[in-house]
Amino acid sequence: MSDATLNSTSDLQRSQDSYMDLVRRKRMYSGIIVVVFVALMVSGFNLADARSAGGFWDGIGNIFQFPGEVVREAGQKIQNLPGLMLGAVPSLIETLNIALAATLIGALTGGVFALLSTRGLARWPRLIGLFRRMMDVLRAFPEIVIALVLIFVMGGGPVPAMIAIALHTTGALGKLFSEVAENADSKPIEGLQSVGASWIQRMVFGVMPQVAPNWSSYALLRFEINIRASAILGFVGEGGIGQDLRLAMQWGQGRYDEVVAIFIVLFLTIVVVDQTSSHFRDRLVKGR
């Protein structure tokens, strides 16, 4: 009895020791991680500062200089703004069309890729790995690379940007779609199979109704991202409101009212699309 009490106290002592030891070790690891992280951040910023043309401390003072200049000039010509904003609408529509067409094409092909690379649904189960790698590679290509190369071959216009965004979207949505499809209930699919439905029929009638809300929600989110991408591609490459913005910026002083008009139009579009799409996404995922 006394033996047992003695044992249990030493047991308690031992487990307390090992617990404290564990806590100490955990604290030490967390401490090391924090120190390494801080060191990385500090040296990273120093390096970035050293490799940049203008230093951080020089730049931070000037940060409002350019926006100030632009806003001041636009303020003087404020009566031009509504007209200029209206004038930016056609190229805004082109930017939106690039994004929408690319999202639709990307969602359609991404859906096919997703079904082909989901375990349990794939038409050719052995090729699942191949389709997944294909999506990985499509995702890894930055849109700008494809767009600039295609501009060289296709000679400008909105089509290179559309193809570039659509390819990236295929990879990105394919992966997300496949994660959704993995959780689809297999009973409707088995039921369809038992009555002799083909693979396409099983997918269209068995899987699609189950995944449609989540897939649409992801596609909407992608549309938001693609509007931004489409504007950037216009700025670096060709087409849409991005190109107008670059041209106005290159002109510099004298056309800053146009720059502001494009900023405002772009900002409003992004906010409106974000809000609308998040409203619909909520409805789709949580059910009206």
Binding site: F45, A48, R51, S52, G54, G59, N62, L245, F263, F267
Partner: peptide, 26 residues
Amino acid sequence: FDFVRGVDGLIWTIILSRAFGPGPLT
């Protein structure tokens, strides 16, 4: 948050590149 997201990376990049010049800092 909404404002910062809505202004979009493109516009932030343009504004910041005027202040900090080309390089990784921008």
